[in-house]
Design a protein around this nucleic acid. Structure first.
Lengths: 152, 152
DNA sequence: GCTCCTGTGTTGTATATACAACATACCCGC
DNA sequence: GCGGGTATGTTGTATATACAACACAGGAGC
């Protein structure tokens, strides 16, 4: 058993430094800001994120999207299923029969168009919350992660 | 219908600036690092986060913990249920009958002790991923959020 | 051509999360 | 003391997430 004094040190260290509790707090807070802004459209930011990857990259496979977002393929599989149900994207079998191909529908495109002002509002609100410097730090940190994912 | 050109602008803006997709990417990545490190102990970082708040603050109510983590009370209710099942914390009715009181068990304390080296490893790995500057930025951003939560 | 290995996607299970609706308990003003 | 408003916690429902196990398709080596 650890000494009482050491125990306190352990708790204090984790409490005052833990990166996980902090990133998770930021995630809940910021996701909430965007979800609230998008609520009138009936879409969540998690879903719009997937649609944006497909919009940006054109014809991609589910695996490509999952890698880009550093997300489990099984997670993405179910997310895609829901987006397909709402007819925001289409899934077809690739020529080789192995990979599937994702593609935005016209309805999906319209959704992105309509999302713009709501997204903008949430983005501004988040910048106000974090401050300009904080916001830029998040962008930089994400770029670092993307760079390292690419290398693997 | 928006013009094709404007549509491209919309997609590019969101794709290149969106804070939500980035914080969510960081959340998945970092949560994964900590969960993997803690797997030998059979605890997840989300659960350790809750236990740490209780350890740090002593006798707290579920509502207090939820506010501190900016989490829905209903979410915390179910998390506590699982922690109670594993006997890492105890729930008792407060004197006033209204608020409940959470308290770590001896088993919960031992879990935190045993977690220390695994947490330390994950924290170091995360710092290596983000860089010192990136890691510090996350700490600062979280402090900003906590400050604003406190004001509300 | 067969075999094995790898990449791709799905399904089973558990957890984390939020919102809405609800039941209570408390407190404040009167 | 009473009534209404508010704080507290639970439950129903939907989504997001991961891990493990699986099915299957393609290719590489022989």
């Amino acid at each position: 058993m650890m000494k009482e004094e050491s125990m306190t040190t352990t708790v204090d260290s984790i409490a005052s430094e833990c990166l996980a509790v902090r990133i998770r707090l930021l995630n809940r807070t910021i996701t909430g800001i965007f979800d609230e802004a998008l609520r009138p459209l009936g879409v969540k930011i998690s879903q719009l994120n997937v649609l944006m990857v497909v919009a940006k990259r054109g014809l991609v496979s589910p695996g490509d999207v999952a890698r880009r977002l550093n997300m489990e393929k099984s997670t993405l599989s179910r997310n895609v299923e829901r987006l397909r149900t709402r007819e925001w994207l289409r899934v077809s079998d690739g020529e080789s029969g192995r990979k599937q191909v994702l593609e935005l529908t016209a309805k999906g495109l319209r959704l992105i168009e309509k999302s713009w002002p709501h997204w903008k509002k949430a983005q501004a609100e988040t910048e106000a919350l974090l401050g300009q410097q904080g916001a830029r730090s998040i962008l930089r940190a994400a770029n670092t992660v993307w760079a390292q994912l690419g290398r693997d």
